[in-house]
């Protein structure tokens, strides 16, 4: 009883003084006093929010078209897998940019912002959402001036050449965007989307896991530990489940 009241009091106090604090926990938790037993409450687990595809929450239609074209060159469609666009990598990035990742809310974002050594990591003031907004616009502006075209209108070989130039720092993007840094962010997020659990909007039908032979969210391999050098027989499963579970077996 006491504990319950403490929690409620803390919660109310918290809400009234929220401006004093940066909330940084995953799901906001409040100060508690625990004693006498392991605390237990039903339904208190914290599963991931499932991304529902359709529409864009962060990107403008123009930005979305550019990102879809880029992820489709980073992960091209070929005989090994579908491309990054069909796999949902752009949807994944869109949803990530609206959340804690996009706003850097978990990171240390106090100034002063000074240029650092490479060993000191990213020291910029812009968060990923801001870097995408400015970076995508700078790619559009650069290509419009150079080629009179958007990235999506270029031939695949020319798209690849442009991305390779960004990666190598051989293109000067406008608005102070550092091409290798922004390309690195695009690359990192595309790979996350392609290989993360499909619950986050990418890796459609576990395409990357099927490609690699990664069984996904399975939790017990005891029957295969000693089967050295033998292929694992079962298909992957996701946190969301598996399409195989829905197939009626005769």
């Amino acid at each position: 009883m006491d504990r319950h009241n403490t929690v409620q009091l803390s919660r109310r106090l918290f809400l009234s003084s929220v401006a004093m604090f940066t909330v940084t926990a995953t799901s906001a938790s409040f100060a508690r006093s625990l004693s006498g037993s392991l605390p237990w409450a039903p339904m208190s687990s914290d599963p991931p929010m499932q991304v529902v595809s359709g529409g864009w929450q962060f990107f403008t239609p123009q930005e979305a078209a550019l990102v879809e074209a880029i992820v489709d060159r980073i992960v091209p469609a070929d005989d090994l897998s579908m491309g990054g666009k069909e796999a949902g990598c752009a949807v994944y990035i869109d949803r990530q940019l609206t959340g804690a990742f996009g706003t850097s809310s978990r990171l240390y974002t106090q100034g002063p912002f000074l240029p650092g050594l490479p060993t000191q990591g990213y020291q910029g003031e812009a968060n990923p959402a801001q870097r995408y907004r400015v970076g995508l616009a700078s790619i559009d502006a650069f290509l419009k001036q150079r080629d009179g075209k958007t990235f999506a209108e270029l031939q695949p070989a020319d798209q690849d050449a442009f991305l390779a130039a960004m990666e190598a720092g051989k293109v000067d993007l406008p608005n102070g965007v550092k091409a290798p840094g922004f390309f690195g962010l695009l690359l990192q997020n595309t790979m996350e989307g392609f290989f993360a659990d499909p619950v986050y909007g990418g890796n459609k039908d576990m395409v990357s896991w099927r490609m690699l032979g990664f069984p996904g969210a399975r939790y017990d391999y005891r029957d295969h530990v000693s089967k050295h050098n033998q292929p694992y027989p079962r298909p992957p499963v996701s946190i969301e489940g598996s399409p195989e579970w829905l197939v009626k077996r005769s």
Binding site: S45, P47, R106, Y108, T109, E192, D197, G216, A217, I239
Partner: peptide
């Protein structure tokens, strides 16, 4: 049971990449 739940513990993005259980730099 609540925080390392077998229904979703196997989430590389959340726990390994975004480091949900770790100290946040903020």
């Amino acid at each position: 049971a609540t925080d390392f739940n077998i229904g979703y513990a196997q989430d590389e993005l959340r726990y390994s990449v975004r480091r949900d259980l770790f100290l946040q730099p903020a």
